[in-house]
Simulated scan of single mutants.
Amino acid sequence: MIKRHCLNEGLTQFVTYTTDNGIDEGFLILRTQPYLPLNDALKSLSLEYNNLLLRKEFTGFAPIYTRFFLSDVENQYQEVCRSDIYNNLSAGSVRMTGKEPLDSAKVSIVSHFLKTDKEHLSRIDNNYPNSLAFRGQNYGMYFYADCGSSESNDPGEQTAIILNKLEKSYSDIEGKKDLIRTWVSVRDIDNNYIPFVVKRKDFFELISMDRYYPASTGVEGRSWDPKRLVVLDALIYSGLDDDQIVKMEAVDNMPSTISYGVTFERGLKVEFGDRTHYHLSGTASIDINGKVIHIGDIHKQVEQALANFKALLNNSGLSFADLMYLVFYVRDAKCTEEIRNIADKILPADIPRVYVRSSICRPQWLMELDGIAIGKGNMQYNPFK
């Protein structure tokens, strides 16, 4: 069952998914009033978070993966690290990314929570210390955040280093089978995306990842370290049978991504006995032949991207109402109001959506969106716990 809580004049939204025989999940969106200085914004977020901790519906939830969207990550990184809100959320895996919030002040937050005992949560001893493992009775979830490298000044070589180090970090999981989701930020994506794509494809071929690729979003994003041109977050599951993972497709709207040489899926669904996770990749204004359509027309691109997204959901028996949240990546910040107006007409009013400034992997795409949905499970499997 989905429950949605909208607080603080809509700046704070908390969405939970609960079942009778699995653990509860929550997704938290935190924003501030616009134009606040960073320090004031961080204090405001911390106060709101502390108020949430006093609410019954938030009791027992632990953060497992958080993204801080920042307007100037290189200069804001240290101040955020010293903040109370970071101290609270860094109990989980945390990423700070340079994507300017367009619906908040200098910072906004999206965070995934599980209602679980601390004994089920632990740091992963590997090459990436900013990671967290949930090891439950039936399944595990492994979040790796802020995976980057400055060992090379080439985006392709950085990609190879990141993926190879990540693969060596696996312990009780099989990456080629259980890598479900990645979020990739590429500095100067108009020039650096292709080298990333090539090295990612080479890596997946090397580890024989051929049954399916992960769901993924690849957009512009800066790191606190300007030398890191590619930064990746990853989600890996354990305890799954092969048939619990299914591709999400919308072939009447969009072609298979591999048809034009990129190695990610439109989305992946992961079935459990009491629920199903739907990880939806970055989706834009693309046609059945893989071409950008409605070039230069932000209104039609938003409508097309949402139509493609809806087709992915509908083909899995879902609707927009099953979404936990959406993130809109906007190339031109001046288009934000128009995008919001269109989205407000199409989407249910209670679906949380976050808007950030970020260029997309093709310059002609003016926006992209991604998100997570949760729906009914498949009773032949164990519940999610």
Score class of each variant (00 low, 15 high):
I161W: 00
R228K: 12
R211T: 13
R181N: 12
P226K: 13
S104G: 08
Y213C: 04
S169T: 14
T182Q: 15
R222P: 00
E100C: 07
Y142H: 07
V231T: 12
S185N: 15
E119K: 14
F196M: 06
Y142T: 02
V110S: 11
A105S: 14
L206C: 05
R95E: 15
Y144A: 02
A133W: 00
R123D: 03
P129Y: 04
K118R: 08
E205I: 05
I161Q: 06
S108I: 02
A133K: 13
D103Q: 07
F204K: 14
L132G: 08
K99A: 07
T97L: 12
T116R: 13
V219C: 15
D172L: 04
R123Q: 09
D188P: 02
N164F: 03
Y212Q: 08
S223R: 01
A160E: 13
S131N: 06
F143V: 14
E220S: 15
D188H: 10
S208L: 08
R228T: 15
R181A: 09
V107C: 10
K201V: 11
L166N: 05
T97Y: 06
K106C: 00
L206Q: 14
V107F: 04
S122P: 11
V197R: 07
Y213P: 00
Y139T: 09
G136P: 06
L232G: 00
F196P: 00
D117S: 15
D103V: 10
K199E: 15
A215T: 04
P129W: 04
D225M: 10
S208F: 07
D154K: 01
S223L: 05
W224V: 01
D225N: 13
Y213R: 03
K168C: 10
M209S: 10
H120G: 02
G148N: 05
T116F: 14
D146E: 11
S171Q: 10
I173N: 01
G218F: 07
L114P: 03
C147W: 00
N130P: 02
N191Y: 12
V198A: 09
D117R: 12
L132N: 11
E167I: 04
L114Y: 15
D146V: 02
R187Y: 11
D117I: 06
Y213E: 07
S216F: 02
D117V: 06
L232V: 15
R181C: 07
R187S: 14
Q137P: 03
Y193V: 14
S111R: 06
I162W: 01
V197Q: 08
